[in-house]
Design a protein around this nucleic acid. Structure first.
Lengths: 311, 311
DNA sequence: GACGAAGGCCAAGAAAATCTTAGCCTGACC
DNA sequence: GGTCAGGCTAAGATTTTCTTGGCCTTCGTC
């Protein structure tokens, strides 16, 4: 019953499943994007191949590779779905002009964005939806108007505005700082880690630390915000991100015992999907204005120099 | 459960239903295009409006009118679906390079195309699918590679090649022709009609007929091919279309009793959707070559003049 | 002014598409 | 050689989508 002859088009679901699988090079990733199981993707792709009458993927033992046919149609398909998603985006923007969806790293949402939310809402009368996600969303596919992430470059199809440079340096509660005069003193302290930023301490120590450091204790937190709370509570020393801890430093709840010794990470960027509606521009401008003054880094010497993107 | 907050996109089905409804300006037409019932379209559109949070159509007593929101998003949506359909078209072309789908008016399929099919298949080794439809398909939406219709102009998004001019004139079996020396003689004959070409006789009579004609009898057929069979059988006089009856005239099975008295209708055109794959070009060329010689009109005076495409 | 056709709306149930679960298989990698 | 990741399949469940049938309004016709 498969070569029915009637040129009834394949289902849109199948096309979308194939497009996602082809773009990601695998069912698992495609399934994640579409919020289904890999088996569902596989079924749809198989159906599409049946409709076509020939395979779209070579099933190699270690994964999928597009056939020439598949490779030939993927660009057009992807472009079409991008257009479709763009249409949906403008549709929502037209339908709910006051709604704005922001995606951000959880810690950015908590530490950078949250304090600025009242001001943002006061300035624009917006209904804000905050989406906290560890990975940047696919702006072409998801209904996200803006993103807030650390990154060296803008994702494809987006422009990016640097909101604040990001310098990494140890921070701790004032009571602990008294005992920390030189990096070597960290040997007697508890080092606090964030699980997704495991490299923060190694990077800083590599640049500024004593040769071999064996800290007294270590603790790892799955959320940077919690780690910061622990640091404030005096539990140990955490690597602070200047873009996020500026306010806490200004308030004196945290101090930077080795203030001038920093390493520089990718800056905090505001990601603006291209082709967005005009109502975004003032918001972008406002957020950009917020970036500078309020995220004050504690070292004047670092301020004037504009940040260059690193590979 | 409708304002869920999660920006999950609307279903592709709903988008497609809305797009079709907006394009056609009504659920009924959209339902026809998508092969569902109007109620299904209505449900989907309602769901999309619920997702959006505001209506896309004004429900006026006499029909639907797009709201400003709807009007704002329609172009982008239509373009996206056009792109999607284009992608599917190239997909199928890539997957089955030997397959070609031709849409044609039933009478054209029977009288013009059928005799040429063997030659076409011999020339190109194609798997042909013939789709007979009274109305031209929407080439951007349906998997149709070529169309054969009478028409004054090419549909939007298509180019057209004139295959043959179309002149209308009475035809009948030779035995009947003896009694028809002047148009006034038609008063004693049976006039054969085609139900979709009801205007053929009036048009011809208006141009060439006697003032007031009361034919002896009339008969109407729902298919032109059947009407032609009736004419061949001597049942009456039919308006012949030069593009379709050339062969029958050449064989002598029909004659044109008032040969030089014709009215000209829209020419027979080959419709070529733009953006088609390259494999179409030779087929178009072949069909164009077929148009001239084989569709011989019975009057030499008409032959030499080449037909120019009209706007 | 009654009537029928056309078009849209709705609710309930049917049908179909889609998705998940669970188990199997493969090659890759330690 | 065990484990893991990724793809395949079948069967059954779930969700989405569609149809049916009835109601309502308007419009054009007689």
């Amino acid at each position: 019953m498969e070569p029915a002859g009637r040129p009834s088009p394949p289902s849109l679901t199948a096309l979308r499943a194939f497009e996602a699988a082809a773009r990601h090079g695998g069912y698992v990733a495609a399934a994640r994007e579409l919020n289904v199981t890999p088996a569902a993707i596989g079924t749809q792709v198989k159906g599409l191949e049946a409709w076509l009458g020939r395979p779209l993927f070579h099933r190699l033992p270690n994964g999928l590779v597009l056939t020439p046919e598949g490779r030939a149609v993927l660009p057009a398909l992807s472009a079409a779905f991008d257009a479709l998603n763009g249409a949906v985006r403008t549709m929502r923007a037209v339908g709910r002009p006051r709604e704005l969806t922001l995606a951000a790293l959880p810690c950015i949402a908590q530490l950078w964005l949250a304090p600025r939310l009242p001001g943002l809402q006061a300035a624009f009368d917006l209904d804000l939806a905050i989406l906290t996600r560890d990975e940047q969303p696919d702006y072409a596919r998801e209904l996200v108007d803006l993103g807030l992430y650390f990154g060296a470059a803008a994702p494809a199809g987006c422009t990016a505005v640097v909101l604040a440079r990001d310098d990494l340096f140890p921070v701790c509660a004032p009571v602990l700082a008294a005992r920390l005069r030189r990096p070597a003193d960290l040997g007697g302290a508890t080092l606090l880690h964030d699980s997704v930023w495991r490299e923060d301490w190694p990077r800083w120590l590599h640049a500024h630390g004593p040769g071999a450091l064996r800290p007294a204790r270590e603790a790892t937190f799955s959320l940077y915000g919690i780690a910061l709370d622990a640091a404030i509570a005096g539990s140990g020393v955490l690597i602070g991100h200047s873009a996020l801890v500026g306010k806490l430093l200004a308030e004196g709840r945290l101090v930077a015992p080795f203030g001038e010794r920093v390493v520089t990470g990718p800056p905090l960027r505001l990601i603006v999907p291209e082709g967005g509606d005009g109502r975004l521009a003032p918001v972008v401008r406002w957020l950009k204005g917020e970036g500078g003054p309020n995220s004050a880094v504690p070292h004047d010497s670092l301020e004037p120099e504009p940040v260059a993107a690193t590979g």
